[in-house]
């Protein structure tokens, strides 16, 4: 099925694609058909830079279970960073923008 489910967010940071590192400005998170993963539906994450065109994309297609593990890993890592570094995490985020 084509769910059409997509959530987008503006982000700051860098990603590494086939042509090396590039600046990211948006992430699109969808739950829909994968292009490659061998499941009918997957959690798809596309990190992009609009100015660079469709080809500059960091893409992953995860099973729902894997996507939840990723969310947990990200939140755990962020929490540990905040505990260890404190407000510096916020400062680092601001410096990236």
């Amino acid at each position: 099925m084509c769910t059409g489910i997509v959530e987008s967010a503006k982000v700051s940071g860098s990603g590494k694609g086939p042509r090396g590192w590039f600046k990211l400005d948006e992430v699109n998170v969808s739950f829909d058909h994968p292009f490659d993963a061998s499941v009918e539906h997957s959690l798809n994450i596309d990190f992009v830079n609009h100015a660079e065109g469709p080809s500059l994309r960091i893409a992953v297609e995860l099973t729902p279970e894997s996507a939840r593990k990723l969310v947990e890993a990200i939140l755990t890592s962020l929490t540990r960073g905040e505990v260890q570094i404190g407000k510096d995490v916020t400062l680092t985020s601001q410096q990236l923008t």
């Binding site: 059409g4 997509v6 948006e26 829909d32 292009f35 992009v48 065109g53 469709p54």
Partner: peptide
Amino acid sequence: FGHGSPDDVAAKVRGSGG
């Protein structure tokens, strides 16, 4: 929506709301 591999272009369309 631009040009690239079919999946890259389709991902851009997907992210743009279709």
